[in-house]
Design a protein around this nucleic acid. Structure first.
Lengths: 324, 324
DNA sequence: CTGAAAGCGCTTACAG
DNA sequence: CTGAAAGCGCTTACAG
């Protein structure tokens, strides 16, 4: 059988409770005893039994990661990347990760409820925002600790969340383009829903007006085309790829005739030339911060909800160019 | 506090052990008693405590999913998709999923070892093949149950694995192209490593020779170009995208001048036109089957290793056309 | 078909 | 600073 705390205790000549305390490096235990215990653990190759620890302590030390209930999550590199980041950060804190996925919100909610009620997780990191999500409601109503990656459209003040500053992201795109002497800039999107669109576009518009620049909102469709724009801000990488393709087939050269700047710095930016100039949103840090905030929330009584802003960087590649 | 098996027992007027048996629908228990127990469970809103069950039964009922120790896993939609499929299939069997990720093989191996030795998982599903992987060695040496998605290059006979028939995939591409009257076909790849390349190319070559078709192997690089080919088989979607781009910029039209057929049917096939003709490899079924095979392996004594072949489908889109 | 009891491997007041 | 004991919520031989 596997070696237990009792075996270690016997070998070290102490009580099992002492071993338990020594393992968690309790300040109650003398250094001498700790050393003895550590030696015994080592010699026997002791490994804790996770289930026993959970049962006795009441803490699961695992976080549930909730993916959106849509099929297109597979296509967005964001999710796999943040999952890795969450998992690796969690491991550093000796925390495990469980996942909740589903094709429908109902399925997903069921899995979330089950994970919590069967005491498999201490709480959740939710990887999507959007409006009035039943799962968020459930978590909120039951006072289950969770942190959201993104910006919720409601209950902003009650939800600990971590996100980029999307408004600033909108501003900075304009700022960069203005630096390159562009004066006719449109914002291109394929959706007008959601906080991401709203904030990026808001920032874009605001900054454009501040500079006295011509700006428009273009919604991508089959017969998308531009008029007198010399630069475009595109809401994400995938759409930017389509935009480049469309413009190219209309005889416009990117970036010679028109500059493009976009967001996320996903794999899509560097599959085919011209490689896209884009803002990197630091997914790794989003994930790592979400874990830390979650642990704060779980461990501190009366911890107030807070928003954490993760910085971004402009990655200049081949789709932006100064006007002469 | 949460309601336990004891509370249910009291309410139903039976012993806790009876409740335990009733819950797992043991044939030892009378239907009448089961009904009583179920009623009590329902009224009290009983939920099992996962940790207690694990500790008492010795089964964790969770599978560890091992991702490759590379950074580019984020860019391949395959991983997120198969993870969802594994998670959703597992849930149907009342099984949880844990994940193991890492930037280096050492990190990854450490997490795998920890998960197993701390009894967090019953075994693993490994999402990559490749040659002589230390993690695979570890699992094999310690007789830890695992199934591999893909085809290992060694120990084939000792490892339960699930994969597509890559050789057949190579053949079928040629077959389809020959049906479209193509007679000069090359195979395009960016790597000559790994079972996937070897088998797809092997099948391709074999079938081309069988038909007496001109065939060549082209390795993609900066100055990639074709000579007299009228059709190309490209090893995966992402590379196909690059190939299309390259050919287009050389003045060749796809599919009018040259047909392209590729593999995987990932998101990359339908971002920009021409949409790629591709083989769908049924990732959902790969994942679901991996879970089922894992459970067989875990539960049946002396279960022999086996390979399961998952079927594929040709998805005709815009990059293939008959020669006139 | 059901019950009583021991046990899974930890943690944590309580006592000293 | 350390030990003895109870307990976390299940499962599972054993007995009847």
């Amino acid at each position: 059988m596997a070696v237990t705390i009792k075996d270690v205790a016997k070998k070290a000549g102490v009580n099992a409770s002492t071993v338990s305390r020594a393992i968690k490096d309790s300040s109650e235990i003398s250094d001498k005893t700790k050393a003895k215990v550590r030696k015994a653990m080592h010699e026997l190759g002791y490994r804790r039994n996770a289930a026993a620890q959970v049962l006795a302590s009441g803490k699961t030390n695992t976080i549930g990661v909730v993916f959106p209930a849509v099929n297109d999550k597979e296509s967005q590199p964001f999710y796999m990347k943040i999952l890795s980041s969450i998992n690796e950060t969690a491991r550093d804190y000796d925390i495990s990760v469980a996942i909740a996925t589903g094709h429908t919100v109902a399925q997903l909610k069921k899995q979330v409820e089950l994970q919590y009620s069967e005491k498999r997780v201490d709480g959740f990191i939710v990887l999507y925002a959007g409006k009035s999500d039943p799962i968020r409601e459930y978590l909120l109503n039951n006072k289950i600790p969770f942190v959201l990656v993104g910006t919720p459209s409601d209950h902003k003040n009650e939800i600990t969340h971590v996100d980029n500053d999307n408004m600033l992201l909108g501003r900075e795109a304009v700022h960069h383009l203005v630096d390159l002497h562009h004066e006719n800039i449109s914002f291109v999107t394929d959706t007008t829903q959601g906080e991401v669109f709203e904030e990026r576009y808001h920032g874009f518009k605001d900054e454009a007006q501040r500079y006295g620049i011509n700006e428009k909102l273009l919604v991508m469709d089959r017969d998308f085309s531009v008029t007198n724009e010399t630069a475009l801000v595109v809401i994400d990488d995938v759409l930017a790829l389509k935009v480049v393709k469309q413009l190219t087939s209309q005889g416009l050269r990117v970036p010679e005739d028109i500059s493009i700047i976009t967001y996320n710095n996903s794999i899509f930016t560097t599959i085919i030339h011209p490689y896209l100039t884009t803002f990197d949103i630091n997914i790794e840090q989003l994930g790592a911060t979400a874990v830390k905030k979650f642990l704060d929330l779980r461990d501190e009584e009366e911890k107030l909800p807070e928003k954490t802003i993760i910085p971004f960087q402009l990655i200049e590649r081949e789709t932006t160019k100064a006007r002469i």
